[in-house]
Amino acid sequence: MEMMTVEQAIYQALAEEMQRDNRVIAMGEGIATKQLQLVEAFGKERVRNTPLAEAVVAGTAVGAAASGLRPVIDMLFAPFLSYAMDALVNSAGKLRQISGGQFEFPLVTLAMTGSGWCVGGQHNHNLEAAFVHMPGLKVLMPSTPADFKGLLKSAIRDNNPVLLFTDLGLLHSQGEVPRDTDYLVPLAKAAIRRIGTDVTLVSYAKTVAVCELAATQLAEQGIEAEVIDLRCLKPLDETTVLASVRKTGRLVCVHEASGLCGMAAELSALVAEKAFESLRAPVMRVTGADATPPASWMLEQVGVPSVQNIMGAVIDQVAIKTMPAAYRLS
């Protein structure tokens, strides 16, 4: 193990995979300028600076992926993906199925988002759920440096288009990362960060740590919260979430993205459909607002789920001693 930041873990994973497989290439606006160690190790043919033209960068990656290369593209900030939607959604996501399975798209798209840098709504916009809605794509949003390494390596080895969102607030956070060059974290497997019996907190990215803090404080009040870090939003690890809710009977979903049609809504529906009989209280969501993420530090903080918000939701839930009759199965 060695201590490193999320950013270092990302580029270590990329370098290891480029070393392992010469079909892996990296493209992006500035990647060859900023990641000089990659250029030194693999040359400018495999580490490519691109024009500021997201549509053709993504399209080129899609065409290359279908033709034998394994591109990793750095699209910088998540809102810039709007220019790349045709390539990622209509081409990478759909052309495998449209063609009856003739093509594979081993392609990884990196994008940063999230509060903490006060960059405003055209650089910070948590769009992950929008991509979860798109067929053929996989979506990752890890929370620890080790997971960034292990998940990115798995994504590069996967034969499908994967988006990996990096929460800006985590970019420079540190953690222990295995040195193993074959350290892989499987896609579609959530991590249980804290075991508890009274309520399940499900989150991903930066707000996992907020949930863990809330859980610590709840424990002081005698409430034991289980904290699940989804890590991979699509495919969704339904098994881990359902098993936990069946145990605790309560679910609070937490994320920074807007709640409307977001991951929390999906998790709520999942539990309503498959674990309704276990619920001892209505599912609650603690999410960002249906509004443009602001640049003002003060407003940015208001829009992010806090320990206080999460604790409030849990305490409200626990106060419900029995479900209203209408909720009970006959």
Partner: peptide, 17 residues
């Protein structure tokens, strides 16, 4: 859409794929 992907196919060609 075809124009967006064509450079990538050509890049793979150029890189020996």
């Amino acid at each position: 859409g075809e124009l967006s992907m064509a450079p990538g196919v050509a890049l793979a060609q150029k890189m020996g794929q």
